[in-house]
């Protein structure tokens, strides 16, 4: 490690510390304020924290300290998100690549695509309740219906905007259609696919909670409905914080995958700018 690397890593650590310091200060101020107000609507962070602990993380060590409430509500919700995103990736990426490489078909279907993505999917949820069984089926359907659009449209864009020189080079070297797809089109579209995936992830979290609020017998949203009905504000707040943490962690995981898969992209951009 040379001096420059040391300086860079020191700067990174400083930035990291500063970010957490901001968060810690905000929580501290909230604590002081809430304690002084003693409001039933705004419990102090310490109360929220202990409620989270009591609800989800006070289980036996053999279950990684997860309570039955946690395994019964958090895990099903995560499962729905992952299942929904999985379906969206398996359907959206191949479809998006196919459409992106056939501009005539895309131009033909464009009104349909624009119409589809303009429908606020939360309003379609009652339709899904009628169509599917209440529970995982209906919730995954809602997540898929809402998250397919950002991924599909981004993939179409990525596949359509592959540099023609890159395609021509592949043809000049007589790569087969499949080889062109896997070694040129897919990698080239990957940055846009990941952009779509990030959007899809944040949307999926919202739709997961929403669909559980309206029709579910377990899950994080279901727990929220219960707490709301019982005017149990500490639990409501605990769920909110949990959702924030989940969103943060899922995003960080996706970011980590992207960092590895698109290392070339960041590198190339830094070198040309």
């Amino acid at each position: 490690m040379n001096v420059r690397d040391l300086a860079v890593s020191a700067a990174r650590r400083l930035r990291w510390a500063r970010q957490w310091l901001v968060l810690a200060t905000a929580v501290g101020l909230w604590q002081l304020w809430a304690e002084s107000r003693k409001s039933a609507f705004f419990p102090p962070p310490s109360a929220i924290g202990s409620r989270m602990h009591q609800l989800w993380f006070s289980g036996p060590a053999s279950h990684l300290f997860l309570t039955s409430n946690a395994t019964g509500n958090i895990l099903p919700s995560l499962e729905r998100i992952l299942l929904g995103l999985g379906i969206v990736i398996v359907v959206g990426v191949p479809l998006g690549i196919a459409l992106g490489r056939s501009p005539a078909v895309t131009a033909f279907l464009d009104p349909l695509l624009q119409f589809g993505r303009s429908i606020p999917v939360v309003t379609a949820a009652p339709v899904f309740i009628a169509l599917f069984k209440i529970g995982t089926q209906m919730e995954v359907a809602t997540i898929v219906a809402g998250t397919i659009w950002p991924l599909l449209l981004n993939t179409i864009d990525g596949a359509a905007s592959v540099d023609p020189v890159q395609i021509q080079t592949a043809r000049a070297f007589r790569l087969s259609g499949w080889q062109r797809l896997t070694t040129v089109i897919l990698p080239s579209a990957m940055p846009k696919i990941f952009a779509g995936l990030r959007l899809a992830l944040s949307v999926s979290l919202i739709l997961m909670v929403f669909s559980e609020l309206i029709g579910s017998s377990n899950g994080i949203g279901y727990e929220m409905t219960n707490a709301s009905n019982a005017f149990d504000l500490p639990t409501l707040w605990a769920v909110l914080v949990l959702l924030g943490i989940l969103g943060y962690v899922l995003n960080a995981i996706l970011y980590g995958i992207e960092n590895v898969a698109l290392a070339w992209h960041r590198g190339a951009r830094q070198h040309t700018s």
């Binding site: 021509q168 000049a172 070297f173 007589r174 790569l175 087969s176 080889q179 070694t183 040129v184």
Partner: peptide, 25 residues
């Protein structure tokens, strides 16, 4: 050999894999 090397070389492949590409067939 195309004019614009920055566009005809694939940035996601190492130099070696770029050169090996036409041998795929």
């Amino acid at each position: 050999v195309f004019q614009d090397y920055s566009r005809s070389l694939y940035p996601w492949l190492s130099v070696r894999d770029n050169v090996a590409l036409p041998l795929r067939r």
